[in-house]
């Protein structure tokens, strides 16, 4: 696994300021989550597809992302249509599918995919090294911004460490099976990862202190919000507001 993302590119979406994209992504995700009608969920999905197309998302990587979400949706479709009480839509033997149940499952599926598309296009296209900076730019505490920036970096490090650990276990003829021995060994491996992570974290903070770390999250560049970002925020707020109001009148 690498934290380099699959959704790089040079479209105008990628050139927008990371803070603005994160803000718009979260705002739109919340607006979609508040929607409760199938028609509006369709509108949101259409918007998600449009933004995804504008960002020229890699179709294969996108489908891989949506697979996990839609596996859960399949499970919902297996349960909800006959569990919600309401008007009978059609009867399959002893099971009666209700109109309300089908509508609910349809709504959730559309909404889930719409949010996933919007967030992938707007937020997942941010270069990982900019995420901490974007959070700080949106007014979140420095410690949290540091935590995000360092966790992204350390995830790769720890993953490599885990790979090394597994190889040393393999060299000692460890073969995972369904047994207490396997569970105990994996427990020891997790403990070892924690100990090494702890010690590495201590070395990292010592090195950071040598470089004048005082807890403040500093960046050298502070790009201004340009007209494109302003248009993007305005369009997002307008879009979310319009659909929100239209659904409730």
């Amino acid at each position: 696994m690498s934290c380099a993302n699959d959704f790089g590119g040079g479209t105008f979406v990628h050139q927008l300021d990371a803070r603005v994209r994160l803000f718009c992504g979260v705002l739109l995700a919340l607006a979609v989550a508040l929607s409760a009608r199938v028609l509006f969920a369709c509108c949101w999905l259409g918007l998600g597809l449009a933004v995804g197309a504008a960002a020229r998302l890699n179709a294969r990587a996108l489908l891989r992302r949506l697979r996990h979400l839609n596996a859960f949706m399949l499970f919902l479709w297996a349960v909800l249509p006959w569990s919600v009480e309401g008007k009978t839509w059609c009867a399959l033997g002893p099971l009666t599918l209700t109109e309300e149940g089908v509508r609910l499952a349809m709504n959730i599926t559309l909404k889930g995919n719409a949010i996933a598309l919007l967030c992938t296009a707007l937020v997942s296209t941010i270069a990982p090294q900019r995420l901490g900076w974007a959070l700080k730019g949106l007014g979140l505490p420095d410690k949290l911004a540091y935590l995000v920036a360092l966790t992204i970096r350390h995830t790769d490090v720890v993953h490599e460490e885990y790979g090394r650990l597994r190889r040393t276990m393999k060299a000692r003829a460890f073969h995972p099976r369904f047994s207490m021995h396997t569970l105990r060994t994996i427990g020891y491996a997790v403990g070892e990862l924690l100990v090494r992570g702890m010690e590495r974290g201590e070395r990292v903070v010592a090195a950071m202190k040598c470089r004048a770390f005082d807890g403040r999250f500093r960046t050298l560049d502070a790009p201004l919000i340009g007209w494109r970002e302003a248009v993007c925020v305005a369009a997002t707020v307008l879009c979310a507001g319009t659909l929100f109001v239209l659904e409730r009148v």
Partner: peptide
């Protein structure tokens, strides 16, 4: 902060 980030990464990987 770096230690907590390291542990967050351990739990992410685990």
């Amino acid at each position: 902060t770096p230690k907590t980030a390291m542990l967050a990464a351990v739990f992410f990987v685990a």
